[in-house]
Design a protein around this nucleic acid. Structure first.
Lengths: 142, 142
DNA sequence: CTGTATCCTCTCTGATACTG
DNA sequence: CAGTATCAGAGAGGATACAG
């Protein structure tokens, strides 16, 4: 990726911030895109939204996020932890007790996410109506 | 999807008063979840964010959203149009000229999305640092 | 130019079983 | 309880060709 305005490229971009390199999700190679995908992914968004309500243990989170499998939840949480959005606190007891919570950055992101989710839930009637209209037209035209 | 107190919109979900169903993304069967997936999907989020800058024609949008294939862009736009977030204006000329723009509801959603994207781009240095830390620990432990 | 149709690949996903 | 490992299917996604 050599495009001019978006140079926070993969791998070696750890601390190159003092010139005018701007993160740009529209650029295929920009890491912000991958981060966005973690945050907005099928389970990532729900996990962050759930954790916004407070810390959760693994299985509690699994019950909260209806439909997620063990595997996907673990995988999702690992990605979010690696990105620094989620903090994982494991007490070395038997049986193990692991608590997940949001980091400060994670909280910021989760709040934006919550606003988005709230908006979508609020606009659900409009969406349903729009779908009905769309499908009706489609049907009448073939 | 009638679980008791969940739902981001709970507490101010007065707009569905004629029945007491509250939209709840955490519920597997709630349609809001599918809408959220369209909006936050890999290409849906980028398409909406791009259209927030103004109307686009198909190929212009395709160039803006770096990396999207014709197929996926068409598919994504159809889903967003059906949900009532995107308006499609086709002039019946030859060659065809089709312009995509946001509906009022779409604009609301896109704005939230833009805030989220802006935040993520701004926090990218923190994320990169967090990743480096995470990977270092992982490596030192096996 | 703006799509649709087809084929093919590869990742994501979920069940299941197993470990500490 | 909190995961990891493995496997098979479903569906996302891309390349290409073609239509209006």
């Amino acid at each position: 990726m050599n495009s001019p305005a978006s140079g926070i490229a993969a791998g070696r971009a750890t601390d190159v911030a003092h010139d005018r390199l701007v993160a740009d999700v529209f650029a295929r190679a920009c890491e912000s895109r991958r981060v966005l995908e973690h945050v907005t992914g099928r389970w990532g968004s729900l996990a962050l939204a759930a954790l916004a309500e407070g810390p959760f243990r693994f299985n509690a989170l699994r019950r909260k996020v209806d439909g997620v499998s063990e595997k996907m939840l673990a995988q999702t949480l690992q990605a979010l932890e690696r990105d620094g959005f989620v903090h994982r606190e494991a007490e070395p007891t038997i049986p193990p007790r692991v608590e997940y919570s949001l980091t400060p950055t994670g909280r910021e992101v989760a709040e934006k996410l919550l606003e988005l989710i709230g908006l979508i839930e609020a606009r659900l009637p409009e969406v349903t109506a729009a779908r009905a209209r769309y499908d009706a037209v489609k049907l009448s035209r073939g």
